[in-house]
Amino acid sequence: MSEITLSGLEKRYGDELAVEDVSVTIDDGELLCLLGPSGSGKSTTLRMLAGLETPTDGEIRIGDENVTDRPAYERTTATVFQDWALFPHKTVLENVAFGLKMQGIGKDERREQAHEMLERVRMAEYADDNPMNLSGGQKQRVALARSLAVNPDVLLLDEPLSNLDKRLSEDMQIELREIHAELEETFVHVTHDQDEAFTLADRIGIMADGNLVQVGEPNEVYQNPKNQFIEGFLGDTNFVEGTVERTTLDSIRVETELGREVILPTASGEADALAEGDSVTLSLRPEVLSIEPAESAGSEDGETAHAVRTDGSTTNSVVGTIENVLYRGSTVRYSVVVNGTTVFVERTVGDAGAFDAGDEIRINWDGADLLAFRDNGSRVDL
């Protein structure tokens, strides 16, 4: 079992800075997902951890050992690659047994261990097959079995599911989660797929421009993003520009593109150094928005927005016109034009209601459900 500590990790390729000052501790037996867009530095970080790249600066520790300068074959890690990297001239069993052979384990014992690992990933019946004749999902299982067969302290996974179709990828996510729970080993999994990260991870590390921006449990990074980049990267949201109109002891009033003003309650009793005239960006996630026919709330022609206090909470409301309706399988997305600005609302098919393009609707939300960000992308502490 191994705890991993990355301290001030940096990687340069000439003048290009690929990874900058990455520091994190990955707990013994934890499954950490490094999540970020292409070019964010997540795979480079994994390759340094695997010993396939040498850091320009910083330190890597696995357990009590400093492995920063050790080559891959001297580390207690194994890596599953995106392209599987199976040997085409060896059978499935021989592929899985290869690492054991390199460890000097005898033929009979390594065949037995390889068979056990193939059974674990439900591929034992393909032991004598050529791996090139397998499907993508089957190849991924063989690659996983080969990496696990050597009993590593740390398993590294570099976008291993990216070549699979959606349904197969989802099935493999569940299997990986179950294997991790069974083995209780430390896994570090790199992906650009948010659903994959949220399904697998004990914690998620969000990377952008070579930096590790935030690390936390899935629910934490989604509900409490550190900055606007994370808020926009995780899931879908509506960003609405606004200007602070005034602040009080318990609220901030923001003039927005949607209409007259939006009220944001402040639990701390202060407006976090926001002043009248400051620019802010509000985030309205679709799941916090409710919709209803405009006439059911007593709207009048030309009404664009209103905000009222009810029972100690802050209710905001705008009236707009549905521009288009997009059916997305189990959900329906409504694009709504409000005062010249387009926002979207999503509902499950069963709760979607009979709304059509051209209908006038009212969108409601509680001000406490919104997040606000400054011009530099930092989050406003409400």
Rank of each mutant, 00 (worst) to 15 (best):
G104Q: 01
E109G: 07
R110Y: 10
R111D: 15
E112R: 15
Q113A: 13
H115V: 15
E116H: 12
L118I: 11
E119G: 15
R120F: 12
R122W: 15
E125I: 01
Y126T: 02
D129V: 05
P131T: 03
L134R: 04
Q138D: 12
Q140E: 04
Q140V: 04
R141I: 03
R141V: 04
V142H: 04
L144Y: 04
L144P: 05
A145S: 05
S147N: 13
A149R: 02
V150R: 13
N151I: 00
P152S: 13
V154S: 02
V154C: 09
L157C: 14
L164F: 00
L164C: 00
D165P: 06
D165W: 11
K166G: 01
K166R: 12
K166T: 12
R167E: 14
L168T: 10
S169G: 10
S169A: 13
D171V: 00
D171E: 13
M172L: 05
M172I: 00
I174L: 14
E178S: 11
I179V: 04
E182D: 15
T186N: 14
F187I: 15
V188W: 01
V190E: 08
H192I: 08
Q194S: 11
Q194K: 15
D195M: 11
A197S: 07
A197W: 00
F198G: 01
F198D: 07
T199S: 10
G205R: 03
I206L: 13
A208T: 06
